[in-house]
């Protein structure tokens, strides 16, 4: 097995693991992630000195079980990642297909929209929107979804342009197939492997952006246990209780790494079936 394949497998295991964790969170958690116990604040993890066996990863500054919060936090990360990819994918793929397939004036308009989007400073606009509308999960998802579509649009547009000129598309036109059939059955299946890679990339970016927004206090509102929010809340205690910042930080790092590994692996796999 090559290193690439090993990496892809590790990535798949991580992403699948986090996904299962997110879906079955209520069944896994040992404690209520929102329940506070001010007598047990900042308890170290069980494997460290002073740790307690009933709090595997210790507790936070309000005495909430850190392991339970971490698991619930994965729900937020996965939800943000997937919802953003779906929203931005819909926008980007539609625009890219319009530009790439129709060409001409439609393409010029699409290119103009993409250029405009690229000149918007992402974080600043996200901050502005959230501070204007107020922060909630929906607002974060919509803001990221409406901002992160440009890579989808660019990749869809160029790949559609390449596939559009191939003879099998010409043969489908000559066979009298409808426009939608040609787009959905002849063109789309042959660019989907490019889009999967973009999707993983965007998902990783969305998760990191949500963490950044939450860290700045403009992401998901407390007491929701987002990993970014956990890092933010932990920053005041990191000198004396370093695990409070390490645990969500490492989790975030591992998840994003896993998604990127998986994306690389999927690209190799799907790209290969096309030629082999």
């Amino acid at each position: 097995m090559s290193i690439r394949k090993i990496a892809a497998t590790i990535g798949a295991v991580i992403v699948l693991g986090v996904l299962l964790m997110a879906v079955f969170a209520p069944l896994i958690v040992p404690h209520d992630p929102f329940a506070q116990d001010l007598n047990l604040r900042l308890v170290p993890p069980s494997f460290m000195e002073g740790g307690r066996s009933d709090h595997f990863l210790g507790t936070d500054q309000l005495g909430r079980d850190y392991f339970s919060r971490l698991i619930y936090g994965s729900r937020i990360s996965m939800l943000i990642g997937l919802a953003t990819v779906i929203t931005s994918g819909l926008i980007g793929i539609t625009l890219g297909m319009l530009g790439g397939f129709i060409g001409g004036r439609a393409d010029m308009v699409v290119m103009f929209i993409i250029t405009c989007r690229l000149s918007i400073p992402l974080i600043l606009v996200a901050l502005a929107v959230v501070s204007l509308v107020g922060s909630s999960l929906t607002v974060v998802v919509m803001t990221l979804g409406l901002l992160l579509w440009e890579r989808f649009a660019v990749v869809t547009r160029t790949t559609v342009m390449q596939v559009r000129t191939l003879d099998y598309v010409a043969a489908a036109w000559a066979a009298g197939c409808s426009r939608s059939h040609i787009l959905l059955r002849e063109v789309l299946p042959n660019i989907v492997h490019h889009l999967v890679v973009v999707a993983t990339l965007e998902m990783a970016i969305a998760i990191l952006l949500e963490a950044a927004l939450s860290f700045l206090g403009l992401g998901v509102p407390p007491p929701l246990p987002s990993w970014g929010l956990m890092i933010s809340e932990a920053k005041d205690y990191m000198f004396f209780s370093p695990w409070v910042i390490m645990v969500p930080g490492v989790s975030l790092f591992v998840l994003v790494l896993g998604i990127n590994f998986l994306g690389d692996g999927l690209r190799d796999m799907l790209g290969a079936t096309r030629d082999a």
Partner: peptide, 24 residues
């Protein structure tokens, strides 16, 4: 109409590698 034209005229292209959809 395109469907009628399709019943009348059909193409054979040069490159048998790009004239068949690789995923079907």
């Amino acid at each position: 109409p395109r469907r009628e034209r399709a019943r009348l005229i059909q193409p054979v292209f040069q490159d048998p590698f790009s004239s068949l959809n690789p995923r079907r």
